[in-house]
Design a protein around this nucleic acid. Structure first.
Length: 366
DNA sequence: GTATGCTTTCGGC
DNA sequence: TTACGGCCGAAAGCATAC
C-alpha cells in the first residue's frame, strides 16, 4: 500500500491572523513587522499579505523600504505579536491531530501528516479527507491554508508549495516521477547550495536528471549515504516517516543593541534578560543543554558565532552567565567591527528525566 | 575511506 | 540612496574514530 503523506502550510500566517481579527483589512496591503527598538521605524517585515506582495514587499525587507513602496496604497502596518500567533497555531495543531493518523508540526505555520491508515492508501479518499480538513480549519478559525499530498514527505512538501495560496494538490503515486522530474534539484530537502552546485558541475540540474544519474558516479562524489538518499528523494521514494512528538533541539534569544558596540559589559547587560529567558524556557520544558553559543551580527550585518560544548547536559543559570561573556570575549578576537545585534543559543537539548544522575554512577549496584 | 560528532554558516519563514 | 528581526533546523566544514 502506498503511503499517503500530507503537508499543510497556512497562507501568509501572521498577516492572515490579523485579517481575521480585523476583516476590514482585507483587500489592503497588510504587513506584520518586527520593530527592533533602535529607532522609531527600524525593523523588518515578517509577513506580508498577497496584496502587499503585489508591490514587491517580502519577508525580511526593512520597514522603511516597505513603507516607501506602499506609499499611497493605504497599507496597514502591524506590530508582530508572536505569542498571539503561537496560541492560534497550537489550537489548530491540536484540532489537526485529531483528524489525521500522525501529525508532525515543523514550524508555527506548517506540519506534515500521515493519513495512510485512515484512507487505506486510497488517493481519492485522501483528497476528500484533506479537503475536509481545510474546510474544518476555515470553519473554526477562518484561516486558509495550502495542502499537498504525496507518497513521501518530499512529494507532499513540493506539492503544497505548488498549491499556494489556498490550494490542494494531490500527487498520486503513479505520477510522482513525472511531477518531480522538471523541478530543480535545489528544491529537494537535503540539497543545499554546495550539493546543488556539485550536481550542476556533473550536468545534473533537474530532479529527473538526478534520478537517471549513474549511482556509482553519485557515490564517488557524495559517499554512499548521501548518494542513496539523493536517488531515493529524486524518485519520491524517500522513506522518512511522519514523526509524532518531536522535541525542539535548540533555544535562542537575539536582541538588537541600543547602539553598535563590542564592549563586553554592554553586550552582557543587554543580553542578561535573554539569558534568563532561555533558562526559564529550559526549566519550564524540563530540558538541559550541552552546548552554548554566542551570536553576533556585526555592523555590516555579517554574522559570527562562538560555541562551547560541555561534558554533561545541564540547566544551570550561573554556568550560562559565566560562559556567555567568555564566548563573546573570544568572538571579539575574530573581528574589529562593532556588533549591531547579539544573541545566545543553547543546543544539544535533552530531557532532564533522561539524565543519568551522578548518584546512579556512584551508587553500588543492587 | 566512511561514519560520527562538533562548530560555524546558511537559509526559510 | 539607504533603509535591516528573531527565531528555527539544515547544510557544510572540519577533526577524529573506526
Amino acid at each position: 500500500m502506498p503511503r499517503v503523506v500530507g503537508h499543510i502550510d497556512f497562507d501568509y500566517f501572521y498577516a492572515q491572523v490579523e485579517e481575521v481579527e480585523n476583516p476590514s483589512l482585507k483587500g489592503r496591503p497588510v504587513i506584520v513587522c518586527v520593530f527592533s527598538g533602535r529607532t522609531e521605524e527600524s525593523g523588518v517585515v515578517s509577513t506580508a499579505n498577497y496584496k502587499a506582495r503585489e508591490f514587491g514587499i517580502h519577508s525580511g525587507m526593512p520597514i522603511n523600504m516597505a513603507k516607501k513602496r506602499l506609499a499611497g496604497k493605504n497599507p496597514q502596518i502591524i506590530k508582530m505579536e508572536h505569542e498571539k500567533y503561537e496560541v492560534i497555531s497550537k489550537e489548530i495543531m491540536n484540532d489537526l491531530e485529531s483528524m489525521v493518523d500522525a501529525l508532525e508540526p515543523t514550524g508555527i505555520d506548517e506540519a506534515f501528516f500521515d493519513i495512510t491508515t485512515s484512507t487505506g492508501g486510497d488517493y481519492v479518499r485522501a483528497r476528500e479527507s484533506a479537503q475536509l480538513i481545510k474546510e474544518s480549519i476555515f470553519r473554526h478559525k477562518h484561516l486558509t491554508c495550502s495542502m499537498g499530498l504525496g507518497q513521501s514527505k518530499i512529494v507532499a512538501k513540493l506539492s503544497s508549495d505548488l498549491a499556494k495560496p489556498g490550494g490542494l494538490m494531490a500527487v498520486i503515486p503513479e505520477t510522482t516521477e513525472a511531477f518531480m522530474a522538471p523541478l530543480p534539484v535545489a528544491k529537494l530537502y537535503g540539497v543545499g547550495p554546495k550539493t546543488s552546485s556539485v550536481l550542476g558541475e556533473m550536468g545534473v540540474r533537474t530532479i529527473g536528471e538526478l534520478a537517471k544519474t549513474n549511482p556509482s558516479r553519485l557515490q564517488k562524489e557524495f559517499g554512499s549515504k548521501l548518494a542513496g538518499y539523493l536517488l531515493a528523494a529524486s524518485t519520491g521514494t524517500d522513506t522518512d516517516p511522519v514523526v509524532v512528538g518531536l522535541e525542539p533541539t535548540q533555544f535562542s534569544r537575539m536582541v538588537t543593541l541600543k547602539r553598535d558596540t563590542r564592549d563586553p559589559h554592554q553586550v552582557y547587560l543587554q543580553l542578561s534578560e535573554g539569558i534568563e529567558h532561555i533558562h526559564k524556557k529550559l526549566t519550564s520544558s524540563d530540558k538541559t543543554f550541552r552546548t552554548v553559543t554566542a551570536i553576533a551580527i556585526l555592523t555590516d550585518l555579517s554574522a559570527r558565532t562562538k560555541s562551547k560544548t560541555f561534558e554533561t547536559s545541564v540547566n544551570d543559570l550561573a554556568l550560562l552567565r559565566e560562559a556567555v561573556p567568555v564566548l563573546f570575549e573570544e568572538l571579539s578576537k575574530t573581528t574589529v567591527k562593532d556588533y549591531r545585534r547579539v544573541g545566545v543559543r543553547v543546543s544539544g537539548l535533552a530531557n532532564s528525566a533522561d539524565q543519568t544522575s551522578l548518584s546512579e554512577f556512584v551508587r553500588p549496584a543492587g
